[in-house]
Simulated scan of single mutants.
Amino acid sequence: MEAYKSIGPYELHPVKTRVALLVKMRFASINKLGTDYLDGHLVMVEPHPNDTIFYKIDNLNNRFFVHHFRLYNMADITPEFRRHMAIAYKVGLREHVK
Score class of each variant (00 low, 15 high):
Met1Trp: 08
Glu2Phe: 08
Ala3Ile: 09
Ala3Gln: 13
Tyr4Val: 03
Ser6Thr: 14
Gly8Asn: 04
Pro9Thr: 09
Tyr10Asp: 04
Glu11Ser: 12
His13Trp: 13
His13Leu: 13
His13Gln: 15
His13Met: 14
Val15Arg: 14
Leu22Ala: 13
Val23Arg: 10
Lys24Met: 10
Lys24Trp: 10
Phe27Gly: 00
Phe27Tyr: 06
Phe27Ile: 03
Phe27Lys: 01
Phe27Pro: 06
Ala28Ser: 07
Ala28Asp: 02
Ala28Leu: 01
Ile30Ser: 07
Ile30Arg: 08
Asn31Lys: 14
Leu33Ile: 12
Gly34Ser: 07
Asp36Gln: 12
Leu38Ile: 15
Asp39Thr: 08
Gly40Ala: 00
Gly40Arg: 01
His41Gly: 09
Met44Gln: 06
Pro47Cys: 07
His48Val: 06
Pro49Glu: 05
Pro49Leu: 06
Asn50Gln: 11
Asp51Arg: 06
Tyr55Leu: 04
Lys56Tyr: 08
Lys56Pro: 04
Leu60Arg: 15
Asn62Leu: 03
Phe64Asn: 14
Phe65Val: 00
Met74Val: 14
Ile77Glu: 00
Ile77Leu: 05
Thr78Gly: 07
Pro79Asn: 01
Phe81Trp: 06
Arg83Asn: 13
His84Asn: 06
Met85Asp: 03
Met85Gly: 02
Lys90Trp: 09
Val91Pro: 04
Arg94Ser: 12
Arg94Cys: 14
Val97Glu: 14
Val97Lys: 15
Lys98Asn: 11
